[in-house]
Structure formats: structure tokens, C-alpha cells
């Protein structure tokens, strides 16, 4: 039987389609036909935030989920999921997972909530989310007083301390809220996906590349099923995933750039790209919030320390 992996992508997401067409066929190729994967869309079997338990119970064989969904289960997930304003490129964060302490920490957090029944195979982000806005937010200063939909705790705290008012409306209301001006901006998805769902029709001032968010994805498997695989197949799966994510990062970025350039030219949409000093200002504010957030649990502290150490190592942080 193919492994049933539930993802947090929407069925029609560019990334979902790309992975399905280009990368899923490579799994049997790389494992001598011993392993096949079916990737199912968000919530197709269980709600996204329940996937770790679902994997543990064997409802699904594994998940491919944005870690943000688990923020409420353990604050350390929120730190790992999206160290808002932290990294500049997905590649940096992917590297943190693959060759630094990322996987180790993420596995430790998963173990603490699922009794070791979930095996983390790999983790990493693939895109920078854009921030669709209905009025121009050109600088850090412009954030003041803006109503921004940001459901996650860390994002809310950072927007609030930058002077914005976080609004916590549910996702199904986001579209209407942007259209009618209930909120000024809302966290959404990669630029290419926002183009597809027509978000820019109602929010024509997208901030891209976004100022805040680079969500981490995890790739896990039920521990028992994982242990039943040969070491060779285990390695192949991990290699496959990182290769897929590196390629996806590249392709989504190209798609995003292409669409953003086309939109800029079209004249109806103004793509806003923050200057470096504005980004730095936000990172300052954000950093204080990361530290506050890390107080929430020991694991969160550990997760943040590992991230900070890595950021210093690669020169993202000075002190």
C-alpha cells in the first residue's frame, strides 16, 4: 500500500500540484519501487492541528504539515514554526533543519507530545508568505493603527508591539473582511496562491517579499512504520524530501517573482517591497517578542536558543 501522507496544502495549491506531478513519482524511483506516497490535501482525513496524534494513532501514515498548526499544543512549536522576521531566505532555515539542530529539536518537541510514536523525517520551509493589504503599508511606521488579521500568537504580539491592531477573525471570513475593509491586511499564503484565489482583487497592495512569515513544514511518519523500513529506504525518503523542498523553494520563488512582476506591470496592483531599514526595525521589535515567547516553556527556550545560535553562526545576528 502507498503511504498515506496528509499535507496542509489546499488541493489546488501550486505547491501541491507541483509536488504531486514532479516529486511523488520520484519516491518509487529512489526506493526501488518499495515505497509509494499518496499526498492528500489539508483536513482530508483529520483537521491539520491533529496530525501528530493521527500519525501516532496510525490513522494516517505520516504528515506534511505546516508546524504553525501545532502552536497551541506546545509553545516550542510556534518558535520552530515561524520565527517571525527572523530569517531572510527559506534556504537558511532549511539548512538549520537539515544540517544544524533543527531536526533534533523538532523531534524532541514531537516526542514530548506524542510519546515517541511520531518520527520526524525532515523539516524546512519552502516559501516566504506575502502579506496582502488593502491600503499601502510602505514602511515600518505605516504599520501603526492598521488592523491586521494574524491568528498566531507570536505574529499577533509582534504586530501589536509594532503599533498595529491584530484582529482575530477566522480564516473563512478573511476574504470578505479584506474586501469590505474590516481588516487592512491579512496573513495568507505564498504570492502565487494569493493570485489564484483572487486575494489581490480585494487587497491590491501586497507586501512581497513578506515582512513576517516563513512557515516551517514537517515531514513525519508513524514510528512503527518507519522502523519497518530499511536504513537505505529511510535515508532515501529523507533525501527525497529535502531535494523536493529545495526544488519547490526555487520554483515557488520563480512563480512568485513572475506573478509579482506581471501584477506590478498591470498597474492595478502595487507590490510593496520594504526597504532594509524597515525590515531591521521590525526584526528589532520581533526579537523582543521571541524572547518573551520563549518564556512560555523550557522546550520553547531551547528551540529559540538553537535558532539564535544558528543565526549568529551564519551572521544573521551580530550579538
Amino acid at each position: 500500500d502507498p503511504l498515506s501522507i496528509q499535507s496542509s496544502f489546499n488541493a489546488g495549491d501550486f505547491s501541491m500540484q507541483y509536488l504531486t506531478e514532479t516529486w511523488l513519482p520520484k519516491v518509487p524511483e529512489m526506493t526501488g519501487g518499495r515505497i509509494e506516497i499518496t499526498l492528500t490535501p489539508n483536513a482530508s482525513v483529520v483537521p491539520a492541528k491533529e496530525t501528530p496524534d493521527a500519525v501516532a494513532a496510525g490513522v494516517i501514515d505520516g504528515d506534511f504539515t505546516s508546524v504553525n498548526y501545532f502552536s497551541g499544543i506546545e509553545p516550542a512549536f510556534a518558535i520552530m514554526a515561524d520565527l517571525i522576521s527572523g530569517y531572510d531566505t527559506p534556504a537558511q532555515m532549511l539548512e538549520f533543519c537539515k544540517n544544524d539542530r533543527g531536526e533534533e529539536i523538532q523531534q524532541k518537541i514531537l516526542d514530548s507530545v506524542t510519546d515517541g510514536e511520531v518520527k520526524l523525517i525532515a523539516c524546512g520551509p519552502y516559501s516566504r508568505e506575502s502579506l496582502p493589504a488593502r491600503i499601502p503599508i510602505r514602511t515600518f511606521e505605516d504599520l501603526k493603527g492598521k488592523k491586521i488579521r494574524a491568528p498566531e500568537g507570536l505574529a499577533s504580539a509582534i504586530f501589536a508591539s509594532a503599533g498595529a491592531s491584530p484582529v482575530s477573525i477566522p480564516f473563512s471570513e478573511v476574504y470578505g473582511a479584506l474586501e469590505k475593509g474590516i481588516v487592512d491586511a491579512a496573513d495568507a499564503s505564498a504570492y502565487v496562491n494569493n493570485v489564484a484565489t483572487g486575494l489581490h482583487d480585494v487587497a491590491p497592495y501586497p507586501l512581497y517579499p513578506g515582512i513576517h512569515s516563513m512557515p516551517l513544514m514537517q515531514f513525519t511518519m508513524n514510528r512503527e512504520r518507519w522502523d519497518a523500513l530499511s536504513a537505505e529506504d529511510q535515508k532515501a525518503l529523507r533525501d527525497w524530501w529535502y531535494a523536493a523542498m529545495e526544488d519547490l523553494t526555487k520554483v515557488v520563488n520563480e512563480q512568485d517573482q513572475e506573478k509579482a512582476a506581471a501584477d506590478s506591470k498591470g498597474g492595478k496592483i502595487e507590490v510593496i517591497n520594504w526597504a532594509l531599514e524597515d525590515r531591521d526595525q521590525l526584526r528589532e521589535v520581533a526579537r523582543a517578542e521571541w524572547l518573551k515567547f520563549a518564556e512560555k516553556s523550557e522546550l520553547a527556550r531551547e528551540a529559540l536558543d538553537a535558532n539564535l545560535a544558528y543565526m549568529k553562526k551564519i551572521g544573521l545576528l551580530k550579538d
Binding site: 489546499n10 489546488g12 495549491d13 501550486f14 490535501p41 489564484a196 484565489t197 483572487g198 480585494v202
Partner: peptide, 15 residues
């Protein structure tokens, strides 16, 4: 809500 969920699932313009 049906059209919104469809739009998100199929990635087509909700407008």
C-alpha cells in the same frame, strides 16, 4: 461559505 471553501480548495478566484 461553500464558494469560499471551494475557492480555497481549487485555488480559483473567490471574487
Amino acid at each position: 461559505v461553500v464558494l469560499i471553501v471551494y475557492g480555497l480548495a481549487a485555488q480559483v478566484s473567490i471574487t
